[in-house]
Simulated scan of single mutants.
Amino acid sequence: MPSGHPPQFGVYLLGSAPDQFGWESRFVRWPDFWLPRDRAYTTEVLIEALRRSGSERVEVACGGGRGRTGTALACLAVLDGVPPGEAVAFVRDAYHRRAVETLWQRRFVERFRS
């Protein structure tokens, strides 16, 4: 459970479905160190998360908080106008220096478009 105020919406990037937390959420099947299984659905969920973040507390989480979460945050940055080639550096600077852990996750961000 997150500390502080609970989110109003959650995006969970995991290999298997999480338990329900008591707030609205979306589950994206995304094995550790890999890429999401359904790119189109992942894009829909991230667009929804970005839209909702303007007025709601939104949580994006995976198991370790760096690879999948960092990749999703970089994709959200792209959706919000950061050039795809700069999004990984942006997230590493603003979130965690080791976010987006694998080469294929970096390529996913660089090729990400809504």
Rank of each mutant, 00 (worst) to 15 (best):
W23F: 15
R51H: 11
R97H: 14
T43M: 14
A94K: 13
D19M: 12
V58L: 04
A49V: 07
E56S: 02
L103F: 15
P7V: 04
W104L: 13
L79E: 06
V11E: 08
E44H: 08
Q105T: 00
R68D: 12
E110I: 06
I47Q: 15
W23P: 02
D80W: 11
G81C: 09
L50W: 05
A77M: 03
R106M: 11
P18M: 10
F27V: 02
D93W: 04
E110S: 11
W34P: 01
F33Q: 13
S3H: 12
I47N: 10
V109K: 06
S55I: 00
P6W: 05
T102R: 13
R92N: 06
P6Q: 10
G85L: 08
A17K: 15
R66V: 15
G81I: 00
T102N: 01
S25H: 09
R97K: 14
E86R: 09
P84F: 03
R66W: 11
V100W: 11
E86I: 06
M1I: 12
P31N: 14
E101Y: 12
R37G: 09
V100R: 03
H5R: 14
P2R: 12
T42F: 15
S55C: 11
A74P: 03
R111Q: 15
G64K: 03
G65K: 08
D93V: 10
Q8W: 01
A87F: 04
T42L: 12
R52Q: 04
P6D: 03
L14C: 10
L73T: 02
M1Q: 12
L50H: 00
F90M: 13
Y41I: 08
L50C: 11
P84T: 06
E59N: 02
H96G: 04
T43P: 00
W30A: 13
D80H: 10
W23V: 02
G81R: 02
G65W: 05
L13V: 03
V82N: 10
R106L: 05
R51V: 10
S16E: 13
C75W: 00
R51Q: 15
L13S: 07
E24K: 05
F9D: 02
E59W: 10
A77I: 01
V45N: 00
E101H: 09
R107M: 13
Y95W: 09
H96T: 02
A99T: 10
W23Y: 15
R26Y: 06
E59Y: 04
L79D: 12
R111Y: 08
G10W: 01
G54C: 05
C75L: 00
E101M: 07
F27S: 08
S25G: 14
R51K: 14
T102V: 11
Y12A: 06
E48I: 06
F9L: 06
A72H: 08
E101N: 11
